[in-house]
């Protein structure tokens, strides 16, 4: 395939992915908006007013960046996991395999689709948060960069999950038992400085902590960790996971006999 053909193929996948989550918006876009509105209302307004300040910010202002990030993570991941696994389940993944597309085109298409949903949900959640508070973004460029890289990283994760999954249960295990706990413990709701020293160190092993904090730094200008290194790590994870996913795809893991 030449460059133009590859671009058309890539675009086809992206459009198809976006169409999919738009078609089933009551399952993909609506629930996170409602859940997050609840979080803002309960933790931000009702409980938050009693919590007082966190790192010098109103509690609601402190958790909004974390909750946006949490929506981006879960939605990017589950979009690719369920879409690609659905393609496997319905065998329509064969449409991709028989075509002349290279593995990286397929992978990039699905990542872009997953990131599109993650970012769209992130945007919706941001809009919802405006009913509760007004945030100024301190470092807009960094904020955009880190949210995009997080969306792509978890899209790749969802892709790997879908390749390895044999049944629908297999694509809900990781979100429930890995992503959700890591996100909750990843500094969405609190600064790790509020933890005993031992747990602060344990928290530093959690990759999601770095993304949430870098994103929060972009918006509020405060972070528990060194933002520069966090950014390097996020880029590194993207590269590593992309390579792993591509290798699995090219070997036909989970999709070819």
């Amino acid at each position: 395939m030449n460059a133009q053909q590859t671009l058309i193929a890539l675009w086809t996948i992206v459009v198809r992915e976006i169409r999919r989550f738009m078609r089933i918006w009551p399952q993909t876009l609506l629930p996170p908006s409602i859940t997050m509105a609840m979080y803002f209302l309960i933790f931000g307004n009702l409980i938050g007013s009693r919590v007082g300040e966190m790192d010098g910010f109103d509690y609601i202002d402190y958790i909004v960046p974390g909750l946006i990030m949490m929506s981006v993570i879960t939605n990017s991941y589950s979009n690719v996991a369920s879409s690609f696994f659905g393609n496997k389940f319905q065998r329509s993944v064969e449409e991709l395999i028989v075509s002349p597309m290279q593995g990286w085109t397929i992978l990039t298409g699905f990542i872009a689709g997953g990131a599109a949903r993650g970012l769209l949900v992130g945007l919706i959640v941001t809009l919802v948060s405006m009913f509760f508070t007004r945030l100024e973004v301190v470092h807009p460029l960094l904020t955009c960069l880190v949210v995009v890289l997080t969306a792509t990283l978890f899209s790749i994760g969802g892709f790997i999950n879908a390749l390895m999954a044999n049944k629908f249960d297999d694509i809900s295990i990781v979100p429930i038992f890995v992503l959700t706990p890591l996100t909750y413990l990843g500094g969405v709701f609190y600064s790790i400085h509020t933890l005993p020293e031992f747990w602060q160190h344990v928290s530093l092993l959690n990759p999601i902590l770095y993304m949430v904090n870098t994103f929060r730094f972009g918006i509020l200008g405060v972070s528990d960790i060194a933002v520069g290194w966090a950014l390097v790590a996020i880029v590194g994870f993207n590269v590593l996971f992309f390579a792993v996913a591509l290798r699995m795809l090219n070997r036909g893991k989970g999709i070819r006999h």
Binding site: M1, N2, Q5, A9, W11, T12, E95, S99, M101
Partner: peptide, 9 residues
């Protein structure tokens, strides 16, 4: 979509 996968505009 299949046409797209072959790079056909």
């Amino acid at each position: 979509a299949q046409a797209g996968y072959y790079g056909i505009p």
